[in-house]
Simulated assay, not measured.
Amino acid sequence: MWTNLTLALSGGTSSLTGVGASGSVSATATASPSGGSGSYSYSWSRASGDSGISINSTTSASPTFSAVCQSGVPRTATWRCTVTSGGVSVSETVTITLTFFSRDTDPV
């Protein structure tokens, strides 16, 4: 039975405090579709922003995004997730923001 296909995205923001001038930071975003035919396929692509943010899987419902960040300088990119079910597709975007703070520059 077919029902209207909808999509909600969540997550995508992370910060890390460590030692040094830079650090590797990662965050997970989650696609939560509903409706459709019950079988979903996922396709993630960068819509805009920092090309230094990588994704571990473009076909996962919950991919991990990561980047090496300079202390106190956030890296931001908008990613689009397209979910397909029964030949019908729906897309939404999520903004991924990753920030590293050196213990020497950690905000109070």
Rank of each mutant, 00 (worst) to 15 (best):
M1L: 10
T3F: 12
L5R: 00
T6F: 10
L7C: 06
A8M: 12
A8L: 14
L9M: 13
G12N: 05
S14R: 07
S15V: 08
L16N: 08
T17M: 08
G18W: 05
G18C: 10
V19E: 13
S24A: 15
S24V: 15
V25D: 02
V25S: 03
S26P: 01
A29K: 00
S32D: 14
G35K: 00
G35N: 04
G38F: 12
G38P: 04
S43Y: 13
W44C: 02
S45M: 12
S45P: 02
S45V: 15
A47N: 13
D50V: 08
D50S: 10
S51W: 08
G52F: 10
G52M: 10
I53Q: 00
S57A: 15
S57H: 10
T59P: 04
S60K: 05
S60R: 00
S62W: 03
P63F: 06
T64K: 11
F65Y: 09
F65D: 01
S66K: 04
V68E: 09
V68K: 07
Q70E: 13
S71F: 10
P74I: 09
A77K: 00
A77S: 11
A77G: 06
R80C: 00
V83E: 01
T84H: 03
G87S: 06
V88F: 09
S89Y: 07
E92C: 09
V94F: 06
T95P: 03
I96K: 00
T97S: 11
L98K: 00
L98Y: 01
F101L: 07
S102K: 07
R103T: 14
D104E: 15
D106K: 14
P107E: 12
P107R: 07
V108Y: 13
V108I: 12
